[in-house]
Amino acid sequence: MISFQRFDQNSFSFTIDPNIFSEKVITKSLYNYANEYMITWEKVGDIFSIVLRKKDGVINQDLLKYLSEKINQDLIDYKTREIIFAETKDIRNILLIKALSNNEDFENIDLLKDEA
């Protein structure tokens, strides 16, 4: 679980190791918060440091607890989706080709090989 630190009364920060969650996963997870929070993202060494500043109002302790649980859940959720997306890429491509091929034969042409 990622630990969250309060910055001031309307902002908090947390760090993420990109080896655990990719940049894609973090971006997708945080997109949902962009409407209500100003998101600052910087890379400190090999670690991403992210600050969420509430656009209006304060972040009380309960809200911080809720947000930390929600963001952790979102990160795992989007990572799982990414894994499933990668695992099913080939079968999706095969289904697409079969759907468009009208039951005809097809052959694979490598253009880069052709060029060389």
Partner: peptide, 14 residues
């Protein structure tokens, strides 16, 4: 990075 093209040979048989 790479491009693989699948060429659907629809007319070959006909």
């Amino acid at each position: 990075l790479t491009t693989n093209v699948l060429f659907l040979n629809i007319k070959k048989f006909s």
